[in-house]
Design a protein around this nucleic acid. Structure first.
Lengths: 206, 206
DNA sequence: CCGCGGCTAGGCGAAACCCCTAGGAAATAT
DNA sequence: ATATTTCCTAGGGGTTTCGCCTAGCCGCGG
């Protein structure tokens, strides 16, 4: 149904045309090879395989073909991953037809599309970069001590518990937290904890 | 865009008509009062207020008006809560037009609609055989409001932000947090956040 | 009618958060 | 060799949240 609405939206634009709708990634790639579209709209909420791999495959086969990702998630992490995978834009499904069309046209014009709040977060980190060398965000900017604190935060420790474990003052831990937030461009304490929890999870399997 | 596709879908049915599309819950309720529709389609995507409250409000105002919930989440917990709140059905947005129409017609016919796997789970649970085998242990102890708070915590919101979003006092949110911690047997605030983040992640996998 | 669960919210002290500054040590640049 | 930067440390002070109280209101069910 999502696709139906999207097709309708595009069909209303006189200068745009939907040349194919793929059920899955293999068919999408095959169609891209044969039909040579100007733009690929990728739904990243696909169960069964993920859209990021599809974007990477598209990038390999046709580096010039821009990919605009439609997602139902509003997480900046996804937007970052999309850009790192080589996608040209990221727009949420519930954004409304106007914004989606704006995204489509912006990407067709060769630009990157991100919603404002996303671009604020993401742009600074990986603007212009096309080398996906580093896997995770800028965690590597953290010092050893900050890194240590981040991990303890990610395990659910309180500031006091961290201070005790590291044998330092609570004030010191607070300073580390502030520095971590700045380096990771996080605004609030809950966001810091959330990031830490996620990061710890990705680091240690299970 | 979602709405556009949905309207298109319904417009293609000769015997069905879309009488109104509401931007938010208050407008929806007002329109329900004046237009007296045969069915309410409720988007439960939980950005901006929540659909459960809307369903309850609908139930109060017009007990005979059936509500079919459209969601992008596929957790059985949602389906259960929807039914408990008085909804007549639960269907996922990416289900395809055919299934969505089937759901609409089934609910219009006075029946409850659930996807197969959900009805299996929900009915099985009500039947007494306890085969949860999924999700965290005691999240189901939470009330709707607590559940909502838990999700916002898991998305990295501060207490204040949650209070603003839910339009209640900070104190109320704090009370909810305390109750959640008790029910989930969590000791500290960071542990609560950690749990919430993990739980939210299991709801919308990458 | 009354109780009970759920949502609401205030009081209050302690803890955490946030922004500021700052010293000493080690690494790095000049 | 000296200067600068970086890192770890930590305090001051004001705001916010936490944690544990109590408590009113309402709808539902015995």
């Amino acid at each position: 149904m999502m696709r139906e609405g999207l097709r309708q939206l595009i069909a209303n634009e006189p200068d745009l045309e939907v040349c194919y709708e793929a059920e899955d990634a293999p068919r999408a790639l095959a169609a891209i090879d044969s039909l040579r579209p100007d733009l690929a709209l990728v739904d990243i909420s696909l169960k069964e395989s993920n859209g990021l791999e599809l974007i990477k495959d598209i990038r390999i086969r046709q580096p010039e073909l821009p990919a605009l990702v439609l997602s139902m998630h509003d997480e900046s992490l996804y937007a970052e991953r999309v850009l790192r995978a080589g996608g040209q834009g990221y727009v949420m499904k519930d954004e409304g037809g106007v914004k989606i069309m704006a995204a489509i046209r912006q990407v067709l014009a060769g630009r990157i599309y991100l919603s404002e709040k996303m671009s604020d977060r993401v742009l600074g980190k990986l603007a212009g970069k096309h080398a996906p060398a580093s896997t995770e965000p800028s965690v590597e900017l953290l010092t050893d001590r900050e890194f240590e604190v981040l991990q303890l935060i990610g395990r659910g420790s309180t500031t006091r518990q961290i201070a005790e474990k590291l044998r330092v003052s609570v004030k010191t831990v607070e300073t580390h937290r502030v520095n971590i937030k700045q380096k990771l461009k996080l605004d609030t304490a809950p966001e810091l904890i959330r990031f830490a929890v996620r990061w710890v999870e990705t680091q240690s399997p299970e």
